[in-house]
Design a protein around this nucleic acid. Structure first.
Length: 531
DNA sequence: TCTTCTTCCACCTTTGAACCGC
DNA sequence: AGCGGTTCAAAGGTGGAAGAAG
């Protein structure tokens, strides 16, 4: 299994994510514009069988609205975060193919730190402003349609437009908590619903990261170019178009200015930062000064077992800074001293895997067929060594996307028909009402999510009947209570117990801040007391 | 003084209920 | 009675601006 690269691209720093223990892994091309990830066809030819493992399927995920994302990323995407939560724009919308149509999956999105830095806006560019704050406990946004059969996920683009970002660590209303002035990237999880008949099977999953959708979380927009782009493209911001001249405030202000001093005042009044625009944007040279995350950093940002990391709900799950994660990674990869040394070639990586588990990033050739890579993997392209300044333009390198070579891959899926509540059949409404809303809206450790899913799977069972009293997800895997309740995923739990033995310091490991090594409760206290 | 954050505002889209005609 | 289309109001999303906080 090999792959072709984008025309201008080399297979630089192919980051990888692998999970030996859970037979699960996923890859993503960190430095390519290609946001499409493939997994290999299962060699056992089970892909069409109902019991086919998720990891054996040729799952393909691609980010929609790529042109829009390109526009934003070329300037330096910023996402507003507010106390009450703010939607992302552009929102993450992905198409997925290659799933087993009849198997149920859960689709989850979270945000992981892009790097180990904190940023500040200095006049017209982003600068590194120290080290990142400890990553907050991960918050997963479960797609409200979860779990649903693969057929449904593949039918329409999966939209996460309702995902909201906040900086309020106390807000648990389904918001993803981020630090302001930190850079994040979205990450997608596709989790196969646990098989009700085999509770020992934790269910496989895949993860995809979208570096092109990376953004800096801000409480107020810094780059006027970003503001302009948002206004121009976000329908909710239409009121700010036409330089905001149609806005009452500006109309009033303008009329007032006219009264005060006609003539000169009018000239100065250029709404929507017109005057600022003139002084805006120092166009940089063609040098890509983006502080790239090399593959080793990415690799080290990926815990040896992402499934576990999600379980432990630590900063690792949220993907703390690559360096910070390395301590956890080293649990299984002590030989990976130097991140760059640690990067195996794609081939060696695949060779190291059992055949049936091999997985590669693929791209598609113009004829729409999967093709094989040249035998040697290109060496990592030279990267600009860690410059501390991010130029506003060009913010990201933008090599031609392979999909442009392969129009088939860009074919947008039809948007789902809009259904009002009135149009839903009664059975569907009853089903919806049976779902404890808080369970899929509220962020929670993936443990609970999966257990909840499992409980629902059990509840529906093979007979399709619904239990009267499905178990509460919270009753599973809660700290020291674990022994009191049956474990849904004993193999995974065993691994956690081995890697993160409980003691007085780590008893609440799911709440640990692995960056500072302190319990997050302490971190919260510090936040409250202003330390 | 400067940077970052919070809050409020007006404008806009989306949503869903009510209404009407067939 | 049921269905489909239209209208309208409420809810909620948006960036700007001013002021607070550190």
């Amino acid at each position: 299994m090999v792959m072709y690269l984008p025309e201008e691209g080399t297979l630089l720093d192919l980051p990888y994510k692998m999970n030996h223990l859970a037979n699960n892994y996923g890859y993503y091309p960190q430095d390519c514009k290609e946001l499409t990830c493939w997994t290999q066809h299962g060699l056992n030819g089970r892909m069409n069988s109902p019991e086919a493992e998720l990891t054996s399927l040729p799952v393909h995920v691609s980010l929609q609205d790529r042109e829009l994302w390109d526009k934003f990323s070329s300037i330096g995407t910023e996402m507003l975060i507010t106390k009450s939560g703010r939607r992302m724009f552009p929102s993450c919308k992905v198409t997925v193919t290659g799933l087993n149509p009849v198997v149920k999956y859960v689709v989850i999105m979270d945000m992981v730190p892009f790097d180990n830095h904190k940023y500040k806006w200095n006049k017209d560019l982003w600068e590194v402003n120290g080290s990142a704050d400890p990553h907050l406990p991960n918050r997963f946004f479960i797609h409200p349609d979860s779990p649903a059969p693969g057929e449904k996920w593949m039918q329409y683009p999966i939209s996460f437009h309702k995902l909201k970002l906040t900086n309020n660590i106390l807000n648990s209303n389904g918001l993803v908590v981020l630090h302001s002035m930190h850079k994040y990237q979205p990450r997608l999880h596709i989790v196969q619903s646990p098989e009700p008949c085999y509770p020992q099977n934790p269910g496989s999953y895949l993860r995809f990261t979208f570096p092109e959708a990376a953004f800096i979380a801000v409480t107020a927009y810094q780059n006027q170019e970003i503001t302009k782009l948002k206004i121009d493209n976000n329908p909710f911001a239409k009121g700010f178009r036409d330089n905001g001249l149609n806005r009452k405030r500006f109309r009033d202000k303008e009329s007032q200015e006219t009264k005060d001093s006609d003539g000169q005042a009018k000239q100065d009044l250029t709404p929507m930062g017109q005057s600022q625009k003139d002084e805006d944007v120092t166009v940089s040279s063609s040098v890509d000064s983006r502080r790239t995350l090399n593959s080793s950093e990415v690799a080290s940002s990926v815990p040896p077992n992402p499934f576990i990391s999600a379980f432990t709900n630590t900063s690792t799950a949220g993907g703390p800074s690559p360096h910070q994660t390395h301590t956890i990674l080293s649990l299984n990869n002590r030989h990976l001293n130097s991140p760059r040394e640690a990067r195996p070639s794609l081939h060696s990586l695949c060779a190291a895997l059992p055949v049936a588990q091999s997985s590669c990033v693929q791209s598609s050739t113009g004829d729409g067929h999967l093709s094989t890579l040249p035998s040697q993997i290109s060496s990592p392209a030279s990267q600009t060594p860690g410059t501390s300044i991010i130029q506003p333009q060009p913010y990201f390198r933008t090599p031609p996307h392979p999909s442009r070579q392969c129009p088939d891959m860009e074919l947008p899926l039809p948007m789902p028909p809009k259904l009002s509540r009135m149009q839903l059949p009664g059975s569907a409404l009853r089903n919806l009402e049976m779902i404890p809303v808080s369970d899929y809206v509220s962020p929670r450790p993936l443990t609970n999510i999966l257990n909840w899913i499992h409980s629902r799977a059990l509840a529906s069972g093979t007979s399709g009947k619904v239990l009267q009293n499905p178990p509460e997800p919270e009753q599973y895997l809660r700290g020291s209570d674990r022994e009191l309740h049956p474990q849904i995923y004993p193999a995974v739990q065993k691994y956690i117990d081995q890697q993160f033995p409980l003691n007085s310091q780590t008893e609440h490991r799911s709440q640990m801040d692995y960056v500072s090594g302190r319990p997050l409760t302490e971190y919260y206290c510090d936040q409250q007391t202003g330390k």
